[in-house]
Design a protein around this nucleic acid. Structure first.
Lengths: 117, 117
DNA sequence: CCGGATCCGGTCTGATACTG
DNA sequence: CAGTATCAGACCGGATCCGG
């Protein structure tokens, strides 16, 4: 079943901060989720509706991973049915600096990029 | 054969700078290669010897992609046999800012990280 | 209806062997 | 040494299914 909550990321052989960080958010979706969270989105639905179209299976997996990694926390905001609101931890909010650097680079060097929202 | 030089990344439906940037360097290896290049490494061998152990097939593919993306350029520094030295373009060097943000975050939030080099 | 789990085909990864 | 070929297995992504 969900016995493989964590699988492909079990490691710890690298000490370089770049490698360590990329092991956590070095994939195409994680930082996009963080971006949305920084922009105020909180629910599963809101995250799933982003224009990039993240598959639900990937979204659920990333939310799980980000929570295990201490990047986000989930809190039930209603019972029956239970619904969770995902929010960034301090550690997660700190990724805003990384995103900012990425945004600056993208705006400057990737044609077709538009000022976000 | 290598007819699929670019496949899974060919598109441009996203306008968000974050998504655009991640489409280029949003994988586990690309930024590590850029990191090494920033640190002065230039040859295939030097890049392949990094402690993270990038597979040669992946390294060759990433070098190709990074060159197509205008992040690096390759120049033959000797004939018979031909040997190429890979160097960052201005666009590639600018990624140093992104790496810097990543390093800062990693050092602060990922336990076990050591000051690079 | 919403959040997510499950299935499944296709792609990519990564280890190793191989070639010029 | 630089890069390619190969191949099994991991992962992605789209669709569908299910519990609440």
């Amino acid at each position: 079943m969900n016995a493989k909550t964590k699988k492909s990321q079990g490691f710890a052989r690298s000490r370089c901060p770049v490698a360590n960080t990329l092991d956590i958010v070095g994939d195409k979706w994680s930082l996009l989720v963080v971006r949305d969270l920084l922009h105020g989105k909180q629910t599963y639905k809101e995250l799933a509706e982003s224009p990039e179209g993240i598959p639900t299976s990937i979204l659920a997996d990333r939310l799980k991973r980000l929570e295990e990694g201490g990047i986000i926390t989930s809190a039930a905001y209603q019972e029956r049915p239970v619904r969770y609101a995902y929010t960034l931890t301090e550690k997660g909010k700190a990724l805003g600096e990384v995103l900012l650097a990425i945004v600056r680079w993208g705006k400057k060097y990737v044609p077709g990029t538009q000022t976000f929202k």
